[in-house]
Design a protein around this nucleic acid. Structure first.
Lengths: 331, 331
DNA sequence: TTGTAAGCGTTATCAA
DNA sequence: TTGATAACGCTTACAA
């Protein structure tokens, strides 16, 4: 059990009251330079620093934000976590990273975060069951919640997402202008609303060009291997004449796997035989070997939006932000 | 300001003292079934749950662990974070994710974690300046610290690492048995002890086979592009006859970039012209397109070791754990 | 089994 | 500017 100096001890050593000590550590408090200097000096000698835990109890604000994550397979999470922690910390907040993968009970995680008195909860791209939330929301008093990088269909829980409609419009326009006319779409495993929406808009915008006959592939996980397996099955069962001329994959990881398979195993050329589009702008996709055309989510802006709402600088409401089409050699 | 029911309120509503309420929520406390049932019932009605913040203050234990991360570019961090949060949570602990990249002051981060009264601090693969630590350690009273996935050269701060000597011995033995005799090594940017150690052991074990002439390449970042650029410069300036027959890269990301460049830009075959070895067993390296031979760190065991020490189940001391050579088609 | 008193280290508020 | 009182919601130790 390690010991720390408390304000009281510093006060005694400095010959002042403990409130004066507190003031010395409170920016802008009314205290004479003289007292402040003396207190800080003694505090340094005694190795005293304010106890944020006690402060949280007294102020009813922990300045901690729970961040729920359930899918650690998507490498895209990492830059998001970096940006998120960076902006939270810059705002004087700190992230509690809570894993809610299969091993954990979602309701319990929520309750636990609440008991820790976090100032807010961010559902970061999680497949949170909506019923779970509605149940608990009713039980009032929960910390404010936000959904990041995924749609929210829960009343009163705002989401910050990349504008899927705009994204798919840009993508399809690009593909159409490049001359592709036989599109395909590879879905990932999850029936997440965000995922479904990408496909839906893809179909919708092709339909506006009177192209309705779209090949639908599906991968059973979000991994390169699953992407490869999916495209392998497709190519193996589809005569060259009938194949798509462009395949959009729901995210970059699937796309990378598909590219490997198309070039390596089938000896086809990208984009001459089949063009490929991904989603997320995962770093490796931009490397020489791939040159994957993709769409980048406005990470900084999305995070900024959530953090602003948490800080209370902005009214909480669902925000949809435009991303950026990144054209490379795969289309 | 949201309101929560407190133990006192529940006590009044239930007609008992608040300590009885506490007992109802304390497993194994001495309380009659009758009182307990009643209290829990009223508590549920009032939406009461114990305030973990107040508990932490009273018990002097937050059950929070600060996890410092500075390099979010390495996708290997993600599975580690998943395992770490999983095991911490299973032990009743929760991770505070603290970003200490360039934007932040390391000393301050440490001080801040301390002020938050965390039970422990994990330096997860960070390039923490050792002087920083020694300074602060002296100021006693800091939470116990641990270094994960990197060597620690700081007195009293134990590390949990993958056994580099064993790893490189296995790798070099494998390469030697496969018949390779002209090895090369690509280093990443950082002068991290862990990184230097890999190269050192690589040289050492080749030397045991009387092979001393080892080509040293270096990449200026840990990214696929940097790996590609490094190998490009090498190949462009080295006649085919004089080239290495096997190139070990300090991690998988560098290796993947190198592979792309070797095959795509130079039209060489892997492993016939140049064999490649990586380190980390990053998922994409295992996909069909790469088939990268690599070495897998014993993630679960490493995390288990740290968590055991934090729980106090095991004496804190540096632990070196054996990993696993993963042989694929690139060698 | 249950209630009481004291304490954890702060902050808010008011009085001096 | 400074000091004092009460409060934050819980735990520990002890008494009833």
């Amino acid at each position: 059990m390690r010991k720390r100096a408390t304000a009281k001890q510093v006060a005694e050593a400095a010959g002042v009251s403990k409130w004066t000590v507190i003031r010395a550590f409170t920016p802008g408090a009314s205290i004479t330079e003289e007292s402040k200097r003396k207190v800080l000096e003694i505090a340094a000698a005694l190795n005293y620093t304010p106890n944020l835990l006690a402060r949280s109890l007294a102020t009813n604000s922990t300045r901690q934000v729970a961040v729920f994550v359930d899918d650690f397979a998507n490498p895209q999470k990492l830059p998001f976590l970096e940006t998120l922690t960076e902006q939270l910390q810059a705002a004087g907040l700190v992230a509690m990273l809570i894993n809610i993968n299969n091993h954990f009970d979602h309701v319990n995680a929520l309750l636990h975060a609440d008991q820790r008195q976090v100032d807010a909860i961010i559902l970061f791209g999680t497949a949170f069951r909506d019923e779970t939330l509605t149940d608990l929301q009713l039980g009032h008093g929960m910390p404010p919640m936000f959904v990041l990088a995924r749609d929210s269909q829960i009343d009163g829980v705002p989401a910050v997402v990349c504008d899927a409609e705009l994204a798919l419009r840009d993508i399809v326009r690009h593909l159409y202008e490049r001359g592709y006319r036989r599109p395909g779409f590879m879905s990932g495993a999850a029936a997440l609303s965000t995922a479904l929406r990408r496909r839906q808009h893809y179909l919708e915008f092709w339909a506006q060009h009177s192209i309705q006959n779209i090949s639908l592939l599906s991968a059973d996980r979000y991994s390169a291997d699953a992407g490869a397996a999916s495209v392998r099955a497709y190519l193996a069962s589809t005569p060259a004449k009938e194949r798509v001329d462009v395949l959009m994959c729901e995210n970059d990881i699937l796309a990378l796997g598909a590219m490997d398979e198309i070039r390596g195993n089938f000896g086809l050329k990208i984009p001459e035989d089949i063009a490929i589009v991904g989603f997320d702008n995962y770093e490796l996709g931009g490397s020489y070997g791939y040159g994957l055309t993709t769409y980048e989510q406005p990470r900084e802006e999305m995070v900024r939006a959530v953090v602003s709402m948490i800080k209370g600088a902005v009214e909480p409401e669902t925000v949809t932000l435009p991303g950026r089409l990144v054209v490379r050699s795969s289309t």
